[in-house]
Computed example of a mutant assay.
Amino acid sequence: MTKEAKRIVVLGAGYAGMLTVTALAGRARRRDDVSITVVNAGERFTERLRLHQVATGQQLAELNLRELLAGSKAEFQQGWVTGIDPVGRTVRIDDEREIGYDTLVYALGASADTGAVPGAAENAYSLDDAESFARRLAEMSRGNVVICGSGLTGIEAATEIAERFPHLAVTLLGRERPGAMLGPQARAYLDAALRRLGVTVRLGEIVKVRADGVDLAGGGTAPADAVLWTSGVRVSPLAAAAGLTTDGHGRIVTDGALRSVSHPEVYAVGDAAAIRQKYGLMHGTCQSGMPTGAHTAQQIVRQLDGKPVRRFRFGYLHVPISLGRHDAVIQFVHGDESPARARLTGRAAVWYKETVSSAPWPTFRRTLRFPRHTMLGWRR
């Protein structure tokens, strides 16, 4: 490797971060002017698309990041990121290591925001600790389980629990009707599936989580023997603490090419980035996160070759929702995520959802070998 090799460091190995790493490693495998380092807290890849399965005690495949990257251009470093110095262009790890960079990719993602409501952090589980919640469910011979948050994560968790633990009473609680983003036919199918599985839907604003229940605005209460919090996420404060320009939620504000508007040597991808498209700000999903990683890898290589970066464009394709292991509903959407006419339900939707959930790891493997075939996102 030459002394002039550009040091590229990727923080975080989730869906967006890993596709950045594998696409970069594949594109740079014959180059001696670049080094690639990825930093992640653990060696195991977390399949966030399947955490509702883990929450019910199902075992997932062991997907090892170090093994995946062995023999590639990318070096894996295990550790917690504790600080970023954008002036000195270094990253500090929890064991006091410092890693220098010329280009940084910030992909630290998001975690459950249990600090948003009093008592949630103390009395509710989250999918960030899905295995602990699964142990709690396994020891319950009866009782009430309340899922706080009626978005997609809450729906998938509630239906998975109701299917696997039919002796428990499951309540899905949130401010919006489940499936509010779906078209009328897909929403009707979802409603029927919730009734079939015995999931009680309650609408209300959660104001407090107690050890034995959830309090709602206006005085209502949902009794609970176990609470799972799926309402909202928060990002790491590291970017804001380092002086990068962030939005009100702590996400790095990016330019059209996904570079920090204040520090262009820093790219931000996935949940950690505030990415604006014509239809508004993107929200964090695997569907949107992986294309940001693929795009970023391509732009870094373009910069290495002295070419101008290109603008990132993305449009949504679908809203896939599993309803336990034997049912699902897929709403196809326009680029701005408004519902289109097409949808899938039942066995076809189960196959489709499983294909989506299984796709990331094989995609990482392929991009290490065939990076130019990486999907750069759904462009409209």
Rank of each mutant, 00 (worst) to 15 (best):
K3G: 15
T37Y: 07
G42D: 07
A13H: 00
F45T: 01
R7T: 08
I36C: 08
M18C: 10
E4Q: 15
V9W: 01
A28V: 07
R7I: 10
G12N: 02
L24W: 12
A41I: 12
N40A: 15
L51N: 07
V21W: 01
R44H: 10
T20L: 07
L11V: 10
L11P: 03
L24H: 05
E47P: 00
T22C: 13
G12Y: 06
K3W: 11
R7L: 10
R30H: 15
R29M: 09
V34P: 04
I36P: 00
Q53T: 02
R48A: 07
E47T: 06
V10L: 07
A5T: 13
I8Q: 08
S35C: 07
A5F: 12
K6E: 10
K6G: 11
A23C: 12
F45M: 01
Y15W: 09
I8T: 13
V9M: 05
M18N: 00
R30F: 13
S35A: 14
G26D: 09
I8S: 06
I36Q: 04
I8N: 05
K3A: 15
E47A: 04
G26I: 00
T2D: 14
V21A: 01
G17F: 01
R50P: 00
T22Y: 06
V38H: 08
E47Q: 12
G17T: 03
H52L: 07
V10G: 03
L49G: 05
D32E: 14
L19I: 15
R7N: 15
Y15C: 02
T20P: 05
V9H: 11
R29A: 04
V38E: 02
R29Y: 03
L51R: 02
A28N: 04
E47K: 01
G26A: 07
D32Q: 14
R48G: 05
N40S: 07
F45N: 00
T2Q: 13
A25Y: 10
R50D: 07
K6C: 07
G12A: 08
K3T: 13
L11R: 02
S35L: 09
R50Q: 11
G17D: 01
T37M: 09
G42F: 03
D33V: 08
I36D: 04
E43S: 14
Y15L: 08
R48N: 10
A13Q: 10
R27L: 14
D33E: 12
A16W: 05
T46Y: 00
A25K: 06
V10M: 01
A41C: 07
R29F: 08
L51V: 08
H52Q: 04
R48Q: 09
G12Q: 04
V10H: 02
A28F: 03
G26N: 08
